[in-house]
Simulated scan of single mutants.
Amino acid sequence: MNQMINNSQKANINLDTTSQTSRPGTEELVPSRYALRIGEIDVLVVSDGVLPLPTEMLGHNAALADRETWLGDMFLSKDACDWALNVVVVRSGAQTILIDAGLGLDPDLNLPKAGQLVRRLESAGIDLGSVTDIVLTHMHMDHVGGLIVGGVKEQLRPDLRIHVAAAEVKFWEAPDFSRVHMPAGFPDALRAAAKRFAEEYRGNLRLFDEEYEVAPGVVVTRTGGHTPGHSIVRLTSGSDRLMFAGDAVFTVGFDHPDWHNGFEHDPEEAARVRVRLLKELAATGELLVATHMPFPSTGHVAVEGDAFRWVPIAWDY
């Protein structure tokens, strides 16, 4: 993965490669990547930026007073909040795997704080041409948009393999938005992004039904719920384990796993999937990373009465 993790550095990134102080205008005051190891698998969590959305999206089936109480307890605005956008790069054996591809750029949506993935991969020393595989948790725009930015496809390998559930591709041929609760403009933008992605990358798609091992210790599994083909990715090496849960888990879902997220196409099934995964994570103690958890979105899950508790890791410097 080029300069992602030097073998002698283990999980630590050399500060000389992260500050980039010798190149004016490229440094960032806020960290946007975090490296760790799962046994022999190298992992890099990369921030694609943040997506500002109405807070109603966090639980549109919840009473307004309950939602505002939770937001107040979390010291968040009652009107709008920034959703993190996290992407993961994995190196297992000879394969370099990108899990999801970020939002990309859609000028009609005016989201200037998102779509940062390509330049942040570049600043991490990761060449797009080194990516052998891409795993898509699903085909919402904030997961495929980075692949349809002008000039990106030309940098990718012609033999790139893109792994996605067959049910997901089928769904986006005629997507049903009847049960979502999105801001105006988003359904049309999601339809357009999924259609363009499918057209441009059809020859690279590697479809699976329920589960597929992408690389040693890297297994993608369809969960459904959020979208019919929504999938999670499990990393296993030795006694170490990590789950990338995509959009199955949100911050509010620990306290209120039954609240419906506005982007869920089957809210009831999404809630069942969320509870099942959180119970599994609490039982195994494995690490969790998810798309919309605050960066670097790395931690454990504990049971808290009838709900759950998020336990962030201490950063390893």
Rank of each mutant, 00 (worst) to 15 (best):
R222H: 04
H230N: 05
E213M: 12
A193D: 12
A215R: 03
H226K: 10
T223M: 11
A192F: 07
D209Q: 13
G224E: 00
L207N: 05
R222F: 02
A215Y: 01
D188W: 10
G224P: 01
V218H: 05
N204V: 01
V219N: 13
H226Y: 15
R222W: 02
A184H: 11
E200P: 01
P216Q: 07
F186M: 15
A194C: 08
F197W: 03
E200S: 06
A215C: 04
K195C: 11
A192D: 10
N204Q: 15
P216E: 09
V219A: 10
V214T: 02
L205S: 04
V218F: 06
V214A: 03
Y201H: 11
V220A: 13
P187H: 10
L190E: 15
V214R: 03
R222G: 06
E210R: 13
A192Q: 13
D209E: 14
D188G: 14
F186I: 15
P228G: 06
G225T: 00
G203T: 02
A189C: 08
H230S: 11
G185P: 09
V214N: 06
F208A: 00
A184R: 12
P228V: 03
P187V: 04
T223S: 07
L190T: 13
A184F: 07
H230C: 07
E210M: 12
R206L: 13
E200F: 01
L207M: 11
A192S: 14
G203Y: 00
Y212N: 08
E200K: 08
A184V: 12
E210L: 14
Y201I: 09
A192K: 14
L190D: 14
A193H: 10
A184L: 13
V214K: 05
R202H: 14
G217A: 02
T221D: 01
F208N: 01
A198E: 12
T223H: 05
G217Y: 03
L205R: 03
A193F: 02
